[in-house]
Each structure stands twice: as C-alpha cells, then as structure tokens.
Amino acid sequence: MIEASFISYISLAILLFSIGIMGLISRKNIFIIYMSIELMLNAINIIFVTLSKYFGSMDGQIIAMMVMAIAASEAAIFLSLIVAMYRLKHSVNIDDFNTLKQKDTL
C-alpha cells in the first residue's frame, strides 16, 4: 500500500501549500501571512521527506532538516522585524506599510 500512502502524503502537502497560498494572498495581518509562509515551507518539507522515503535516499530528509533550521532562524529575524515595524506604525496590517508606493503618477 505504499502507493496509496504516497499519494495521500503528496495530497496533504498540496493541501497545506494551497492553504498557505490562500492565506498569503487573502489575509492582511502580518502574523497570519507569516504563518501561511511557514505552512508552505512545511508543505514542501513533507514532499521532501515523502520523496526521500520513496526513493530510499537520505538527501530529502537532510534538506528538510536544513529548511527547518533556516525557517527557525528566519522566524527570529522576521519576528524582530515585525516588532520594529509595529513600533513604527502601531499596526500589523500589511497595507499600512506601502510607503514605497508612488503617490502621484506622471
């Protein structure tokens, strides 16, 4: 039944990834967006691990570990950035940070 479980793992990953994308696109709260990104990363991790198992190679698992490690360090930077941004604008709404937008067109 390895085939069936393979398909369900991949399906889970796709589901998680889609949820992450939907969250990324539709939500305004920076935390939710961050969580959606993490969700997508983890969906990719699941695929790595699944394929690693499927091909009988350890490479995928190593990469999954690396992704988790990077995600952790990224989380530290990201959260501190959010804190800094909150201090600036007193808001966690992503639409408040469009300072690079050109105000008046040509």
């Binding site: 994308i21 990324l24 939500r27 992503i94 469009n98 050109q102 067109t105 040509l106």
Partner: peptide, 16 residues
C-alpha cells in the same frame, strides 16, 4: 507607462 505603472499598486496580496 502610466497604465503599466498602475500595476505597482502597493498591495502585497496583489503582488503575491
């Protein structure tokens, strides 16, 4: 140019 510039709407979700 102005029309194309409008795509840069400064909305993160649209970019995404």
């Amino acid at each position: 140019g102005r029309r194309i510039g409008r795509m840069q709407c400064a909305n993160t979700r649209v970019y995404a």
